[in-house]
Amino acid sequence: MGQKVHPRGFRIGIVEPWRSRWYANKKEYGDLLVEDRNIRLFVKSEYKSAAIEKIEIDRTRDQVIIHLFSARPGIIIGRKGQEIDRLKARLEDKFGRRMEVKIVEINNPYRCAQLIAEDIAQQLTKRGSFRRAIKRTLDQVMEAGVLGVKIELSGRLGGAEMSRREKASRGSIPLSTLQRKVDYGFTESKTAQGVIGVKVWVDLGDYADEENSDGANAEAGKVSKKAKRSHKR
């Protein structure tokens, strides 16, 4: 079961939050759902090099708030915030709504399955060896402190005449444990021989441990700021 179910969809509403947070009646629901998808596609296509992991959307009565989770926020923000203002203006023109764009920085891209999948796809598009790409990525992801990682490539690997599937994994990837944070990413690499699908699963440990580590990091950041202030005095 766990291999055929989207790990995030499996956990949504239990331990994972929704990516779109708003309420609408039956008449508006379908249109707003399509609009959310179009916003995500537009932003991802415009900022391919910004390493955007996910886009969360909140809606109020008269405003749409877009949260961009990016490993390279400087590309979206631009010089003196000019690029983010331009993005906001283009979104408002395209969708006819008042928009607000917020950037959330990702500190370690090797703990995000979607960014890992996109990195592998980029290597394959540049005609890199798929075996080297898998091995190198597995090493980098395990060094980031995760409990396990699994990578699956499917297509005409290495320019072969017949498509096949190649899998590689390190550590543990639980299939149906809801309290375990298993991140999942999928993308496609368009090569000269055809399209290669890239799937990545990353085991980040229990949700409780992840929250505790985030809290500890935030507390450590506050302590270091206080230490700097006292040192200046």
Score class of each variant (00 low, 15 high):
103 I>F: 00
125 T>M: 11
166 E>D: 06
194 G>T: 09
125 T>W: 08
103 I>K: 10
173 I>A: 07
163 S>N: 04
171 G>H: 13
155 G>K: 04
195 V>K: 01
140 Q>H: 12
108 N>C: 08
134 I>R: 06
154 S>I: 01
187 T>L: 02
121 A>E: 06
155 G>T: 03
103 I>C: 04
113 A>G: 03
120 I>E: 07
191 T>E: 03
174 P>M: 09
111 R>S: 07
114 Q>Y: 05
137 T>Q: 14
116 I>D: 05
165 R>N: 12
110 Y>Q: 12
161 E>H: 08
180 R>F: 14
155 G>A: 05
154 S>P: 07
179 Q>G: 14
151 I>P: 09
117 A>W: 02
146 V>Y: 06
125 T>N: 05
109 P>I: 10
197 G>C: 07
173 I>L: 11
149 V>Y: 04
184 Y>E: 14
176 S>C: 07
179 Q>F: 14
133 A>C: 08
160 A>W: 00
136 R>G: 14
145 G>E: 14
112 C>S: 14
138 L>N: 09
162 M>R: 11
156 R>A: 02
178 L>T: 15
153 L>M: 07
103 I>T: 06
123 Q>T: 09
177 T>Q: 12
192 A>E: 15
193 Q>C: 03
177 T>L: 13
121 A>G: 02
117 A>K: 07
154 S>W: 02
163 S>K: 07
167 K>L: 12
193 Q>T: 02
168 A>M: 09
179 Q>A: 15
135 K>R: 14
167 K>Q: 13
158 G>T: 08
184 Y>P: 11
159 G>F: 01
156 R>W: 01
158 G>Q: 10
128 G>R: 15
183 D>Q: 04
153 L>G: 02
183 D>N: 01
114 Q>L: 12
173 I>Y: 06
195 V>I: 12
114 Q>H: 06
110 Y>L: 15
132 R>M: 13
113 A>D: 13
140 Q>R: 10
110 Y>H: 13
172 S>W: 09
112 C>E: 15
121 A>I: 01
164 R>C: 09
187 T>W: 05
143 E>P: 11
119 D>L: 04
108 N>S: 12
153 L>H: 01
179 Q>H: 15
174 P>W: 05
196 I>M: 00
137 T>A: 01
164 R>H: 13
188 E>C: 04
126 K>M: 15
102 K>R: 15
145 G>D: 13
176 S>N: 13
158 G>A: 00
120 I>Y: 05
175 L>P: 08
106 I>G: 01
112 C>L: 10
